[in-house]
Structures are given as C-alpha cells and as structure tokens.
C-alpha cells in the first residue's frame, strides 16, 4: 500500500482553479521535493491535503495509508498521521508552548486509543526531542510562537513534528526567508526524522534546502499539475532553463 496516493486532484480557492488534475504517489521511507514557480499550486497542494477550509476539492482523490483523506476533518487528518509544517506558523498569545504541545500529543494519542501522557511523562518525552533538535528549555515556557524569530518558529514546527511522529510530513515552503542556520535546523529536523515508515513532501522553490536533505524524487509542479518527475538532475535543469521552458519542453 502506498503512503500517499493522490489521483487527478482538482481544487479551487475563491473560485480560482489552483489544482488541475494532480497525481502524486509516495512510498513510506521516501522524501519527495515539489518545486515550481510562484502560483504553480505548491502551497495549495499542502493546504488541500491538510484540509484547509477555504479550498474546495472539485474532483479526484487523496488517501493516506489507504484511508480517504478528503472525507476527514483537519484534526482527523492530523490524527491519522498527516503533519503540515507551516510557511507562517501562527502565534497563540497566552498559551504556553508546553501546554500546546502536550494538548496536541494527547489529542493524537487519544485518537489512537493510547493513554494520555501526564505532565511528567510528557516532560521526559519533550526533553528528549528537544535535545535531538538542539533546542533550549526556555522554549517550552514561552507562548506559542509569540515573539519567536522566523527560525525559532520553524524549529518549533520541527519539534511538533518530532513529538507527533506523523507518517507523512509536508513542509510547506518552510525554508523560505530562513537564514542558513535556521535552514540547517530544519534540515536537521527532517534528517533526524527520516525513517523507513515515514514519508516527506518538501514544498520549496529554492534548491537550498535540497543541499541538506537529499530527496529521492523531485517533481515539478506547473499550473496545478505535476509535469515532470525525476532525480537531482532536474534541479540543475531548472537552474539552466527555468520552469517555463522545462515545463513546456
């Protein structure tokens, strides 16, 4: 069974077509990069898979481990193992990162019929994960993303990813606007999480991230469809020819 199977996916947002029959198949253990020019539908793909309300699916199907994603609420998709690292992680004033993380972990555990973690158990788990990502303790006490630098917000998303142990991680242009240290932190998160039963979709329009995370497959998304798939050689071709020429070639 495929980890992710997307067939002929079509979607609109504000009555504008953003996905126009997209096909994508990912096996567990693989890392796929999706590249494309601005407006090609990269973020739309991430949003539609995660179930953002503004997007309307007009045709096609998407399944995660054989389960129909499109019929689930966003929280059910998350509980089923889909994780989205946001381009712009949201701030939640007054809510400590610790409470937020514990609530999320327990929500996912409850959905899987696992017992909730108490404060002590959670604390042990989060310490271990933070160590893995090289994060400082004070991170937990601060309000969710409030006053975080761009890099800290992305690191926080990586921490959430590490805690929730999803089966499919989608990183939505999570590398945009990051300095080199933050970019390395994101790469470190992804690499630490790579495993035979987990898949990744890296949505990006830079190749920088791909220097640190070697993808198995690269796709070019153009006008709402995947028009070309291949290996690292595609990156060089994009550099050389640009998306337009490559897509229409």
């Amino acid at each position: 069974m495929m980890l992710l199977e997307v067939e002929n996916l079509q979607a609109t947002v504000a009555e504008k077509d953003v996905l126009r029959g997209l096909n994508l198949t990912i096996k567990a253990g693989e890392v796929h990069a999706i590249m494309g020019p601005n407006g090609a539908g990269k973020s739309s793909l991430a949003s539609v898979l995660a179930g953002r309300e503004d997007y309307e699916v007009t045709a096609g199907s998407a399944s995660l481990n054989g389960e129909d994603l499109l019929s689930m609420d966003p929280e059910a998709r998350a509980q089923a193992g889909l994780f989205l690292a946001f381009q712009y992680p949201v701030e939640i004033p007054g809510v400590s990162n610790k409470l937020f993380l514990q609530t999320a972990v327990n929500a996912v555990r409850t959905a899987k019929d696992l017992p909730e973690l108490d404060m002590f158990e959670f604390s042990q788990l989060v310490q271990a994960k933070m160590k893995l990502l090289g994060m400082r303790q004070e991170f937990l006490e601060r309000d969710v993303n409030v006053g975080f630098s761009g890099g800290e917000k992305k690191r926080n998303d990586m921490l959430q990813m590490a805690l929730l142990e999803p089966s499919l991680c989608i990183l939505d242009e999570t590398d945009s606007g990051l300095d080199i240290d933050a970019l390395k932190a994101v790469a470190q998160g992804v690499n630490a999480m790579r495993s035979p039963d987990r898949g990744f979709v890296l949505v990006t329009h830079y190749q920088r991230l791909l220097e640190y995370v070697a993808p198995d497959v690269i796709h070019i998304l153009y006008q709402g469809r995947i028009v070309k798939s291949g290996g690292m050689e595609l990156v060089a071709q994009i550099e050389e020819l640009g998306y337009d020429a490559l897509a229409t070639a």
Partner: peptide, 9 residues
C-alpha cells in the same frame, strides 16, 4: 487551523 493540524479538536 493550526491547532486542528496538530490534532486538536
């Protein structure tokens, strides 16, 4: 949406 994406009702 951010909370929902982390599995929170």
């Amino acid at each position: 949406f951010y909370c929902a994406q982390r599995g929170i009702r």
